[in-house]
Amino acid sequence: MSAENGYAVELKGVTFKRGARSIYNDVDIRIPRGKVTGIMGPSGSGKTTLLRLIAAQLKPDRGEVWVNGRNLPTLSRPDLFDMRKEFGVLFQSGALFTDLDVFENVAFPLRVHTKLPEEMIRDIVLMKLEAVGLRGAIELMPDELSGGMKRRVALARAIALDPQILMYDEPFVGQDPISMGMLVRLIRLLNDALGITSIVVSHDLAETASIADYLYVVGDAQVLGQGTPAELMESDNPRIRQFMKGIPDGPVPFHYPAPDYRADLLGSADA
């Protein structure tokens, strides 16, 4: 079904609650195969939660999450761990294993999931590191790397098993312009060269818009809008306009909901 219809990931009527608060309410998202899809939204709108739902680290309260023709919430725990080999995830912090050096970090998925001979593992690791430009750093420990380098090593590790779906969680946060540029180029390059389906979760508008083929804007537990970056820029939905143009006050208010200002001030004088 969904395996053949050109979508790698499909969320159908997904509802996810944390306590009483709905993070997502009956959301449908479809991610096209082989393209870079951006998922954008203001901070705290649950973008990372969405990634975790797709990776089945979280279970939706209702709805279906189809990945490559399988409905994840119905899979057993061992099946899920098997399924995850098809994913690569680049976490916000890189999440390198701090007790292993760069080489072992990238080799880790290979050692766990394959029985390849040592020389072959070495070749693959070197190839992946070459792709991110860090072949010279194989002997360094993670805490000797800069933030940008960590993310690139993590990227090399994420693609070690040649996943079909690669997810990026806020890849641009806290990067200087140079490493930001490198990452943007890398994401695009990997996508085109390996034919991977990429999902980029971010609130960095310009960078995401520059590499994404298709964008979703989420907020208020809903999908606010979707389309190509150009389409969204021209959207007349006020909430999307506010986000895309970066206007401080609008449908997303500047003030956190509060009782009336005057009443609050005078009320405190009464007490």
């Binding site: 990776a55 680290q57 761990f81 098997d82 399924m83 995850r84 080999k85 994913f87 976490f91 390198l96």
Partner: peptide, 10 residues
């Protein structure tokens, strides 16, 4: 996120 990362590696 090393634990999540492990989970994702399977």
């Amino acid at each position: 996120e090393q634990l999540s990362s492990l989970e994702m590696i399977g």
